[in-house]
Design a protein around this nucleic acid. Structure first.
Lengths: 170, 170
DNA sequence: GGGACTTCGACAACGTCGTTGTCTAAATAG
DNA sequence: CTATTTAGACAACGACGTTGTCGAAGTCCC
């Protein structure tokens, strides 16, 4: 029963049969997974087999200037302890390193190592290749339209990171 | 192709109209989250505040004829024990119930309760409303094109469900 | 019919991950 | 100088998924 307020009922377009509403989110998720899986498969081939999907987001959050556990936790939407544990893991893998802040002895600045920067550069290049592949398959115009439409429907760039907790759970 | 673009953070897109390659997966994920969050916010308003994103997928996997823990585990890509625990939680919430299979005393068939069916019907209606909202914002034609393009780029309908494990980890 | 193998579900132990709570050290406000 | 705030470490806890084991029930084959 659709007792909702929003405009239009079923079959907003009129012509042709529209897919059921639940297909859209499903395809969005599948497309995301396809891209990420391909990136990480290629990343593994290029010498980074241990990277996980979330690590790319962590690297982005760390940024070129480095960050701290507390700050990272805020950016990723998790506790500082959880962020600290993630950093521990990345440190063990050799992707980040902790340094001291000369201006604040409490802060331990987390920075990407050369290996971390390398993985980030490689993943950026792979993403470009994948986008080019999509452009080849769909046409440059339609891909641009798709991206524009997604940009229209999604908020600026707020990006919460509770993925595991958000999704799973019972 | 695959010239190294900027390593970190912002890519100063400059003159070109094409966004950096990593924006595509990001927007796909954000769009997915937006839709799912709206569905569950509305679902909460309509009497189902305890449902989590993954539950919808579980309900779909259970289907109208019911299923078993082993089968559910296979469909969702997790162990039968994990599937069993998920069922336990849903049973506590009153969304599914376990019955016996007259033809096989080992099997315990999991079926949706009336409440489970209700939530499924409501979420389907909400998804339709959301799709209509997208159609209103983007235009029916462009939304159809978007869905068609996503369908082109994603495999049939296999969707693995290791989301938490797949994404997180370190 | 009977024995070996397979399948289903339950129980237990373990590891991972994120959470809150507590604590020390360092910076900052008054 | 004292009081408050902040960064980071340590510990305990709960949620979740995993493997391993087990008994019960079904299936296959002689």
């Amino acid at each position: 029963m659709s007792t909702n307020s929003s405009a239009v009922g079923t079959n907003a377009g009129g012509s042709g049969q529209d897919p059921p509403g639940f297909e859209l989110p499903l395809r969005l998720l599948m497309a995301f997974r396809v891209l990420i899986d391909e990136v990480h498969a290629e990343l593994a081939r290029q010498g980074h087999p241990d990277l996980r999907p979330m690590h790319g987001f962590v690297f982005q959050a760390i940024g070129p200037h480095g960050t701290t556990a507390v700050e990272l936790g805020r950016l990723l939407g998790v506790s500082k302890q959880a962020a600290g544990k993630t950093i521990d893991g990345l440190e063990r893998l050799g992707y980040v390193e902790r340094g001291v802040d000369p201006n604040d002895a409490r802060r331990k600045v987390v920075r990407l190592t050369a290996r971390g920067v390398d993985s980030l550069a490689k993943s950026a290049a792979i993403f470009e290749d994948l986008r080019a592949k999509w452009a080849g398959a769909l046409g440059a115009e339609r891909l641009r339209a798709l991206e524009e439409d997604l940009r229209t429907m999604t908020p600026g760039d707020s990006f919460h990171f509770d993925m595991p907790a958000w999704f799973g759970g019972g």
